[in-house]
Amino acid sequence: MNTFLPYTLAGGALVILGLTGFILHRHLIRRLLAFNLTGSGCFLVMTGLAQQGQGVDAVPQALVLTGIVVAVSATALALVLIRRWYHLTGLTGLPEDIEPELQQGDNPAEGKTQGAPH
């Protein structure tokens, strides 16, 4: 069963990389990419680890299939929110991460819409 071990470890590495990226990035789409990488890492650990012990196992494969579909739904949901947010404010990050004064409200977006299309 040793063919599965390198992939399990690669999964672990992906999780670490993805989580670090998720925490350190500010751009919402970059964080989304990091989320997807972490997810892939989890899926690899799930399948790889189980198959190391018991050989080819349909159960984790089915679970991961579910996970992939959930991940794409999460990505789509996040993108919907990001696009709407961008069209209202011209920002691609969360306000607290970019400029602390945005938290106070009073319509700071007016000065920042140059980036918006048209």
Binding site: V45, M46, L49, G53
Partner: peptide
């Protein structure tokens, strides 16, 4: 949570 589940299922 998912990573924890993966570890538990594997072991």
């Amino acid at each position: 949570w998912l990573l924890g589940v993966a570890l538990i299922y594997g072991h």
